[in-house]
Amino acid sequence: MSGSRDAILGAIRHNHIQGEHPRPAVPLFDQAAPADLKVLFQKSLERMGGKILIPDVPDPMAPVRQAIVKPGPVVSCVPEFEGDMKITPQTKPTDIAPVEYAVLRAAFGVAETGSLCFTEKQLHVNTTGFLPQHLIVLLDPAQIVYNLHNAYQRPEWLQAHYAVFQSGPSATADIEGVLVHGAQGVRSLSVLLQP
């Protein structure tokens, strides 16, 4: 196998492409960023098929409770909300399969695309991001960045082994272009902006 490694690298060196090809500097393209990113985030999230839950100041978790309308296990990965299924060090990825709702907190959000970033730190078990039928996500509005260039300046990329941008629920249009949510991952995704 090291034979193939050396052969491939050797062939690449032998077939080196001609000319100068310097590494371009990539700007952040964030000059036009609005001061309040919440509005743009919401608009982008809704375009991607996600929902924004309306906050309730006296009872912050009320919107989460109200969003849970179907019977079935609820797993919570946030201290603010009590689920009825606990994730322990023994929980296997497949154990999440029967879950109807997972309540998670996103590491941060991206206004440009309505994306939510989860790493293993927020997910506890990675499959809580996509094996449940529905996701309810808490997002601190202070943790919304403007665009993807800003997003990749964040520290999470050098800390986590697994990190995912989830932008709306699972989707497919593989049959005649008809959009269907919940192809393999979650069927719906709701976000509560909550510090």
């Binding site: 695309t113 990329w157 697994y162 990190a163 932008s167 249009a173």
Partner: peptide, 24 residues
Amino acid sequence: PVFIRLLSRSALGSPITQYTSHFR
């Protein structure tokens, strides 16, 4: 981000794929 911004917009006309997963 240059590529993430271009990929799904070019492919399907959506700003990003619903899942963009990073394995380290």
